[in-house]
Amino acid sequence: MVKDIITGITNTEIGFITDVNGIAYFTVNDETTVGKELWKSYGTANGTVLLKDIMPGVNSSEPSILINMNGTLFFTAIGEGSGRGMFLNRI
């Protein structure tokens, strides 16, 4: 384990782990944001962080289908006012 994202007895459900240039990108519900959001990890506790709460507030962006294409992360997520769409890791 690199980091206990949800401390205590609750299990952390990590999904869609994808390596892009040695950085692990994944989805997780950390119980501080609503629903699943996009995280990244450099393989250390301090380097494992929420990348961005794409849709802050009462809704989850539910990122999924993370794909490494020539060193760029592409994924789908629900954006504010746009529905589900394709995003780059430059958010």
Rank of each mutant, 00 (worst) to 15 (best):
T18H: 05
F26T: 01
E80N: 06
V58Y: 01
F75N: 02
S60D: 09
S64K: 15
T76K: 08
A77T: 06
S60Q: 07
G43C: 07
W39V: 00
G35M: 04
K40G: 07
P56L: 07
G71S: 04
T48R: 02
G43T: 02
I5M: 00
E31D: 12
T27A: 02
A45M: 13
V49L: 08
V58R: 05
N89F: 01
T72V: 12
I78V: 13
E31G: 05
N68H: 11
T76M: 12
V34G: 00
T48P: 03
I78S: 04
V49D: 08
N70T: 09
I67S: 06
A24K: 10
T76W: 10
F74P: 09
G83V: 07
T12S: 15
M69G: 13
T72H: 07
I91A: 03
S61W: 04
T72P: 00
P56E: 07
T7K: 15
S60T: 15
N21P: 05
P63Y: 01
I5G: 00
T48V: 03
I6K: 06
L50D: 01
G79T: 14
M55D: 03
V58W: 00
Y42R: 12
M55I: 06
W39M: 04
E80G: 06
E31Q: 15
A45V: 15
S82G: 13
L51I: 12
F16N: 15
I65Q: 06
F87Y: 11
K36W: 07
N89A: 08
T48Y: 01
I9S: 10
G35L: 02
V49T: 13
N21D: 10
K52Q: 09
N59G: 02
G22A: 10
G83L: 08
I54E: 01
D53T: 11
K3A: 13
G81K: 01
F26Q: 08
G15I: 09
I17F: 09
G85M: 12
T33M: 02
G8R: 05
I6T: 11
I5E: 00
V28C: 12
L73C: 12
A24C: 09
R90M: 11
T76G: 03
G57V: 13
G22Y: 03
I14W: 07
F74Y: 15
S41E: 11
T48Q: 05
V58G: 10
I17K: 15
G83D: 08
G71E: 05
P63C: 04
T72N: 07
M86T: 13
G22I: 06
G22F: 04
N21Q: 10
N29Y: 09
I9A: 07
I14C: 03
G35D: 11
I6Q: 08
F74W: 14
N70R: 13
G79E: 04
D53Q: 08
P56S: 11
P56V: 15
S61A: 14
N21T: 08
G57P: 11
I14S: 03
I9Q: 09
N89W: 01
G85N: 09
T72M: 05
R90F: 05
T7M: 11
D19T: 14
I17V: 13
